[in-house]
Design a protein around this nucleic acid. Structure first.
Lengths: 362, 362
DNA sequence: CTGTTAGCGCATTCAT
DNA sequence: ATGAATGCGCTAACAG
């Protein structure tokens, strides 16, 4: 058990990870009964044919009311739970949607995953979750594995980079939604926003503030880089940049500011690729006695939950992550129902929220 | 698009959520080719029988090297991706594990989910994620739905409350791990720690500090209540308590402190059921001009990433959430392999980390 | 080492 | 409104 946290002080330790005695005989070792209850058992118990039982449970409109009643009771009596695997094999609907995120622990994408799960669950679908670890080749392998599960839809964070994966996905015929980014050539569908426009908007804001000496603290993932490059491009001159490995976090933000001030003393404002990074910049600034925003202005990205409540509150770029997830789910569900999906690329936009860390209110 | 954030100030708006024109003809509407490539096609292309192709790809030990080679090439040539649904139906191994959490967006459980995913993925398993929303009946329904997918294991956050669900899970024969809690009568296996001991340990710490007038800010979920009750029990006298709806967060922490100070002015220390709640208490204390820890000491739970870096840094209870996930995955994988799983209940313990918010270092 | 024969549990044809 | 046959794609048994 390693606790990597740098600021851990052990004051009071509960008895170390221990182990309780086995509470009772291990039932499952008694060989899980291979005879799971099947629809066949229900049909027999109800005195109807297999298919009537099937329809009574999943297509009630085609069966008489009292047959339904009998089958229902029989199903309850024998404790029947339909095997979706078997049903899906024949019907070619798995009622599953696969989602691939770079990192499960990045709070940024959480509202998207949550909305996705909730919208899908309401329609009887479940989510298979995979993590690409910001690695294109892992993403490709993961997508292949997911295709093998024949999901009814696939949601990916970002545009899929591997051309082989794109082609395979197209051939699979599975509805695909690329999220958190836009493209005029999506694999299938896309819901997101323009990272170029975000970078430009923040740079425009910095320019309007009249800041001359600015720096960038950014994660090394592709989307963060796109925003940073757009920032530089709009800003119009080279910008000192500290690059940290994704996923960025608070401690990395502290290190990034240290690096930037080392490279370029006297910076007036920092543009960060995430709120977590920005929070680290704030902490490091305070630790160095710099006043925010007086000595140093800070802008983040993502509008994390705590950002509005920090002291000073954090200027940031807000994206409606939950909306992205809800739309992605809707697109897939519609396509599964055979509805025409139009448009296939949805821009959810973004907003720059000015708060105290750049001289705004709060 | 509603942005519920209370502290949102629109300074600069990107053009409202807009919509891009359809980039190209909708390929998938051209009817997804129902003829997905099957093992049959591979076998034919390789000039071997179906089962030989199957073994070459998934059981290479039973087939000659050059047959494997031929089959591999044939598989690549036709773009074969095995249908795990079909394979699982026969082999009774879905290579899926279901995980149920109260709320996907609660960062507390994220390291557990992440470790679970990673350990499982390394073994070829994937995770199906479900959310119970802190609702026992939803949890029961969700577990039923999950059983229908015949996962090779089920991981649940907390002890399963519904007796019906417990019984059904036992009958299903699916390995189950209840996490983040301990029990001498788990459905099957358990990995967690004692919330009673946590509450007692924090109360003991408060007593040792000599604080007389203390308060509790707690979420209304069962585990938080258990900790709070144990706190009160050990503390030895009634404690003013503010209860907020789970999942607790920073704004709720602000409200909770306001409520507590209203009920009981002059509180010296607050015990919070989560770090997010504690962070809100810190913010509200600062807003009221209370000095932490001088005027008010604060203790959280969970050791969130930012907690060690706040000003003041936050005293908290640390739990190795990732370890819980890794052990849960290991227990299930072992059981799937038919290995004896001993012990079936694992206590990962916890630690009280003293930081500046209660007068500790930092 | 390879092939043949049977299903896994259900839902889609068809029939009645 | 109900039923009988057929097969989804694959793998566990057995054979050879």
């Amino acid at each position: 058990m390693a606790f990597p946290n740098p600021a851990v002080h052990r004051i009071r330790c509960h008895p170390l990870p221990s182990v309780c005695p086995d509470p009772r005989p291990d039932v499952a070792t008694t060989k899980a009964q291979n005879k799971s209850v099947t629809l066949h058992d229900v049909a027999r118990a109800a005195g109807v044919s297999l298919i009537t039982a099937s329809r009574a449970l999943s297509n009630p409109g085609m069966v008489s009311a009292k047959t339904i009643e009998r089958v229902q009771q029989a199903a309850d009596a024998v404790g029947y739970i339909p095997n979706l695997i078997a049903g899906g094999l024949k019907s070619r609907r798995s009622l599953m949607v696969a989602a691939v995120v770079p990192d499960i622990a990045v709070t940024q994408f959480l509202p998207t995953i949550k909305a996705l799960t909730e919208t899908l669950e309401a329609a009887g679908y479940h989510l298979i979750l995979g993590q690409s670890s910001y690695d294109d080749s892992r993403e490709e392998a993961l997508l292949n594995a997911m295709i093998g599960r024949r999901p009814d839809g696939i949601v990916v964070t970002g545009l899929i980079q591997s051309e082989a994966a794109r082609e395979r996905l197209r051939q699979s015929g599975i509805p695909v939604v690329e999220t958190w980014e836009l493209s005029d050539r999506p694999v299938d569908m896309a819901v997101g926003f323009s990272h170029v426009k975000v970078g430009s908007a923040v740079a425009g804001y910095f320019l309007a503030k009249g800041w001359q000496r600015v720096g960038i603290a950014t994660g090394d993932d592709r989307r963060a880089r796109i925003r940073s490059e757009a920032f530089v491009s709009t800003f119009g001159r080279p910008v000192p940049t500290a690059v940290v490995p994704a996923p960025s976090n608070l401690p990395l933000g502290r290190r990034a500011l240290a690096e930037l001030l080392d490279k370029a003393p006297g910076l007036q404002a920092i543009c960060c690729s995430s709120d977590q990074l920005a929070q680290g910049v704030l902490v490091e600034a305070q630790a160095r006695g710099l006043r925010v925003p007086g000595d140093l202005a800070v802008c983040g990205f993502g509008d994390a939950e705590a950002s509005a409540h920090m002291a000073p509150s954090l200027t940031t770029v807000q994206v409606d992550a939950a909306h992205i997830g809800a739309i992605a789910a809707r697109l897939i569900l519609d396509k599964c129902k055979g509805l025409p999906v139009e448009p296939r690329v949805v821009d959810v936009g973004f907003r720059v929220i000015e708060r105290a860390s750049t001289g705004g209110p709060d």
